[in-house]
């Protein structure tokens, strides 16, 4: 069994093929949430799943590609945030390593850690690359609240953050549930995973 942290050993044929599929899963799930009109995105489940099956480096590449492809297909400004998604992939890998995806409630805790990392990495990118504005909806919120300084500010900012938290928590739990139902014979074909780091398999 290869080490979880081994970079070049992570990219076996199965792992290489998994990456585009993980990215496509992100796109497919995002489509479903839009269709169901849900206030969450679920577009990191593929990345978390890649972390569970094949470790942090494969997940990081899946995260980067998610943004690069959205950048090439629709919105070029997503590309700088590839760094954020890479960090989320690596963090998910570390959380898998420490057994956070063995129970549904630890997976939920992992879901609390992921958006924190995301925010810490995204904020400087927004400031450095885009001078504080991204052209996204949250800018209106930022601008309005910089000005008003009312209690409403805190309320809406909180709401935004809670959405992000809920999104990553639900994503984490779904990724756990999926990984739990993957047969041992299938999961064993991926590199970097030892049984004791993975969700208990039914």
């Amino acid at each position: 069994m290869r080490s979880f942290w081994d970079v070049s050993g992570s990219f076996t044929p199965m792992a290489i093929v998994l990456i585009p599929i993980a990215v496509a899963i992100n796109a497919g799930l995002h489509f479903i949430t839009v269709f169901l009109n849900l206030p969450i995105y679920l577009d990191t489940i593929g990345t978390i799943l890649a972390a569970i099956l094949a470790g942090p480096w494969v997940a990081a590449v899946a995260g980067i590609l998610t943004n690069v492809v959205v950048g090439l297909v629709t919105t070029p400004t997503y590309i700088p945030y590839a760094i954020t998604n890479a960090a989320i992939g690596i963090t998910a890998g570390v959380l898998v390593y420490f057994g956070f995806y063995r129970h549904w409630w630890t997976a939920a805790i992992a879901g609390l850690i992921l958006p924190l990392v995301g925010t810490v990495i995204s904020a400087p990118i927004t400031v450095v690359v885009f001078g504080g504005a991204t052209g996204a909806g949250s800018d209106v919120v930022t601008a309005f609240f910089l000005a008003s300084g009312s209690k409403l500010v805190a309320a809406v900012l909180k709401a935004t953050f809670i959405t992000a938290l809920a999104d990553k928590m639900i994503s984490s739990i779904i990724a756990y549930a999926v990984a739990r139902n993957i047969p041992v014979s299938y999961a064993a074909k991926f590199p970097g995973i030892t049984r004791d780091h993975q969700a208990p398999v039914a």
Binding site: P20, A24, A27, V68
Partner: peptide, 22 residues
């Protein structure tokens, strides 16, 4: 070539997966 495969396969698979979701 793995980099090339990753990029092209992802570009092809993402719309396919949206279609599968539909």
């Amino acid at each position: 070539p793995r980099v090339g495969y990753l990029l092209l396969a992802t570009l092809q698979l993402s719309p396919e997966m949206v279609e599968r979701a539909r």
